[in-house]
Design a protein around this nucleic acid. Structure first.
Length: 337
DNA sequence: AATGCGGGGGC
DNA sequence: GCCCCAGCATT
């Protein structure tokens, strides 16, 4: 038996015993697989799980998703972040429902034409939905392979990525590729951990070339975190709050209206009634909210009764701010100034 | 090659 | 505070 065969056998044997039972592995419906892959882009399994079932119940197939409005789609995506994924998934559903007449493309080239579908996602759908013998390179499998091969170049460089894709392709079996790829993912997620790899229980330890697994994978240095401050207005009237439909960043979502407080001297600057810090990737945003009186309702602003707030898309930091501010009664908010 | 995406969880 | 996560699109 070749070494490669022995490796595949060890991986599959371990998977039968210890692999994860995940809902998107109980189906080969391309739509269900696609939804899972979009949700899992840059997002951990544990975060995705609760949203996955809800999404499939609300949008059970391409046609249902294609029919939905953008607001419905963004609302259902709340809590997952990176909302471009939701917009891309929506756009993909429309393309499949119309241009492809509900016939989901099978070739990797065609898959990769769909918005939000890059190399990883195209290969993942090909293998998990259609059981094609192709490799998948993402966070788990790159870590596992970089250790297995003792790859000492950054995995997020062009050379590193190419090395990983090439090696992974050469290792992928023609038989049971979907199970094999699931197995590699689970080995990365459960055994070949980032900080504390469990080499003691690793079923492929005898194939691993890493002298110092903890030091791998190597990644390029990250840019320093950028500090930002953003100011928004809290305008309430009776049982309504004023929100603005964000034209730019949170496109299509409702946020507390941005305010400029340029006209104030530092000594007389208003005091925020709510402050929170929310970090993301390599940024750190200080969100400050100021109580304001209504001046005028210009384009894109709308009053929302408190009870309606649960049914519209609001980004998490703003929702937390609104929840916190509405949790206080008006007089106590006022008293904080 | 380098960013932006402006999330979320774990330690 | 930092690192990590079933990445993709844009420049």
């Amino acid at each position: 038996m070749t070494k490669q065969r022995a490796f595949q056998r060890a991986v599959l044997g371990w998977y039968r015993e210890r692999g994860r039972d995940l809902p998107w592995r109980r189906t080969r419906d391309p739509y269900a697989v696609l939804v899972s892959e979009f949700m899992l882009q840059q997002t951990q399994v544990g975060t995705v799980l609760p949203h996955y079932k809800d999404w499939l119940r609300r949008f059970p197939n391409f046609a249902a998703l294609a029919r939905a409005s953008e607001a419905e789609v963004l609302h259902a995506w709340q809590g997952l972040g990176y909302y471009n994924r939701a917009r891309n998934l929506h756009a993909t559903a429309k393309i499949v429902a119309t241009r492809h007449c509900e016939h989901f493309p099978r070739s990797i080239d065609q898959l990769q034409q769909l918005p939000g579908v890059g190399k990883y996602t195209a290969h993942a759908i090909a293998t998990f939905a259609f059981d094609q013998p192709v490799a998948i390179i993402e966070a788990n499998t790159s870590r596992l392979l970089s250790r297995l091969l003792d790859l000492r170049i950054p995995i997020d460089s062009t050379a590193g990525r190419n090395a990983l894709w090439n090696s992974a392709s050469a290792l992928t079996p023609k038989k049971a590729p979907a199970a094999y790829n699931s197995a590699l993912l689970d080995l990365g997620a459960l055994v070949c951990l980032p900080r504390q790899p469990k080499c003691g229980i690793c079923p492929v330890k005898r194939f691993c070339r890493a002298k110092n697994p903890k030091s791998l994978p190597i990644k390029r240095p990250r840019p320093g975190t950028k500090q930002l401050v953003e100011k928004h207005a809290f305008v309430v009237e009776h049982d309504k709050v004023l929100l603005e439909k964000s034209p730019a960043r949170w496109r299509g979502m409702w946020i507390l209206p941005p305010v400029k407080l340029d006209g104030f001297k530092p000594s007389s600057l208003p005091h925020p009634i709510y402050t929170a810090v929310f970090p993301f990737t390599n940024h750190r945003v200080a969100l400050k909210v100021f109580r304001q009186r209504l001046r005028q309702i210009d384009n894109g602003k709308c009053w929302f009764p408190f009870r309606k707030l649960d049914s519209i898309p609001i980004p998490s930091p703003h929702r937390r701010a609104i929840d916190a501010l509405l949790g206080l009664n008006v007089s106590s908010v006022h008293a904080q100034r």
